[in-house]
Nucleic acid binder design. Structure first.
Lengths: 145, 145
DNA sequence: TGCTTGCCTGGAGTGCACTCCAAGTCTCTA
DNA sequence: TAGAGACTTGGAGTGCACTCCAGGCAAGCA
């Protein structure tokens, strides 16, 4: 269980760690460091690569993964999409389009536009529920007193 | 597959159906009608009852479920909580507290207050991502042209 | 009378997104 | 030189929230 300890220790705040992004050129991170930086587990990072959500990560002379700042930026974006509920399959599709090159601009844009609509719809739902919660909580406040 | 056909036919708009809420006193709905009204499948409605997310629903003389307007209102609230990401286990906990009676006011209020915080946090995340999406989509617009 | 439709039950199956395991390699420190 | 610790792999396991299945019952209609 040693491997996941780093990520687990980070808890809900991924930046509370000694690992900091390094300047481009000297940017080389082990999977454990990336886990600490992103809050993802090393398991999940390998799985992301396996399913094509990340293009193949660079390797050290002995086969260990070495992530760079571009990888970190990509993981941050992926994290955003994930937090806003985009299915992993859609994120993989987006990653594939990116790898395919410039002629997929339109398709990528469409994918993001569709997701933006989803996010907007979701915000509206959350707002409506917030109103319901406010109402109920107020009732409880009044009754408890 | 006859059973789920009603719910499936409803699609994304649960109100596009001939079943309408009836006045209190004449409110008695079969599981199929409730499925059409709520957009949940009959399977899910039975499962909700089994796990205690609904208190035991009334029965007809031959053992079939008969839902009333209170059940419908509860299902609507549950649907809101579900859409805002509350785990089913928490919703079950809330339902249990409700059944336990008035002395659980404070606990119920606390549960809702905590969820409200979650929802607020989530809205903030979605807003931040919306900004990122706007930026990326604009880039694609410029590059594609 | 037979057929269809809608419902009942407990338990098994599904899809998603991880999460862990076993067995091994490599590097570093005591 | 031994041991610890971080890493490697493919494949199996987990938890959640449903979703379906098999076998059966009851009511309405031709």
């Amino acid at each position: 269980m040693t491997e996941t300890a780093a990520a687990a220790g980070v808890g809900d705040c991924a930046s509370r760690t000694s690992v900091r992004p390094r300047p481009d050129g000297q940017d080389s991170y082990t999977i454990g460091e990336v886990a600490a930086l992103t809050g993802l587990s090393a398991h999940t990072l390998r799985w992301y690569e396996r399913i094509g959500l990340m293009s193949r990560v660079g390797r050290s002379h002995n086969g260990q993964r070495r992530y760079d700042n571009d990888d970190l930026r990509w993981l941050e974006f992926v994290g955003r999409l994930r937090l806003t509920g985009m299915p992993v399959a859609d994120m993989v599709r987006y990653a594939e389009l990116l790898r395919e090159g410039d002629h997929t601009f339109a398709a990528r844009q469409e994918l993001l536009v569709r997701h933006r609509e989803e996010v907007r719809r979701h915000i509206a739902e959350l707002r409506a529920t917030l109103a319901v919660l406010d109402f109920k909580i107020e009732i409880y406040g009044g009754s408890a007193r």
